[in-house]
Design a binder for these strands. Structure first.
Lengths: 134, 134
DNA sequence: TTACCACTTCAAGTCAACTTGAGGTCAAGG
DNA sequence: CCTTGACCTCAAGTTGACTTGAAGTGGTAA
């Protein structure tokens, strides 16, 4: 059991953020000492996961679908598989983007974006683009 | 040369978004016919790149550092290399996250987040977390 | 027992990234 | 020449993800 300042210290998240996450149901406190929140150790991992998923560009709502909202009510396997697939896609896109940037960095073409080599590198990522838009 | 509705069609972005991107300097119109914007073909790739980088979780400001703001003023190689490295990191984290989710999906442990196998999968991504926080 | 102070709540403020709406303009077709 | 409609500008509104500030509370040390 740790209180909010301890969790704040190990996670690097300000207390306000942790309270906010609790409010929206991403984490939960196991109880109170007086009016002060007490968190289980598990929460540390949850918070790390949240940070991780966020840098990956997922919204708090999407993250909720991944790591679950309330305490236990078993994960939605279908949603989870879907998210995993979405991440797979993102990885492929990011890989293309990274390769594209690295290519630009030692490409001599006048206009990098028009460079056919660049466009070939990015091809997979760029062409799927029209379809992705809702 | 294409006008804003054509660009909107091929990119899937509403015209308002394209005007906004122009306002903040992510794209630019090559001129006007009357008061209507005209875009060069290059812009299509730029817009795709923006979409791509956005799903990867980069802010418009960061994207500006990758694909450049104005017309030409050569890319900042250092910044570009840095971004490529950041993407590399993200790829590693996403890979861990994906593997973690897939593991959860056929793990029988009561509390998935406490499952040692899960934690080992996520280890790389989770431990770097405290350091990442500014 | 009282004072301290780290916590609490709740409302309001902030910032990025857009969207919406009102009112204006101008090239093209009739 | 005149209307039409797709574009324009600019201000204000929206949403997600928080932060900030004012006012309250209650274990703990003195």
């Amino acid at each position: 059991m740790l209180d909010i300042s301890e969790l704040s210290n190990v996670s690097g998240f300000p207390a306000s953020k942790l309270r906010y996450y609790e409010e929206v149901g991403l984490i939960r406190s196991a109880g109170r000492r007086g009016l002060k929140r007490l968190y289980e150790d598990e929460v540390k991992i949850r918070v790390s996961l949240i940070a991780l998923a966020q840098t990956a560009g997922f919204s708090l709502l999407e993250i909720k679908q991944m790591i679950g909202a309330e305490g236990r009510p078993d994960f939605d396997r279908a949603a989870l598989a879907e998210k995993a697939d979405a991440i797979d896609m993102k990885i492929r896109e990011l890989t293309a983007l990274r390769n594209g940037l690295r290519h630009i960095n030692n490409c001599t073409a006048a206009n990098h974006l028009d460079c056919p080599r660049f466009q070939r590198i990015m091809h997979v990522a760029l062409t799927r683009n029209g379809q992705r838009r809702k």
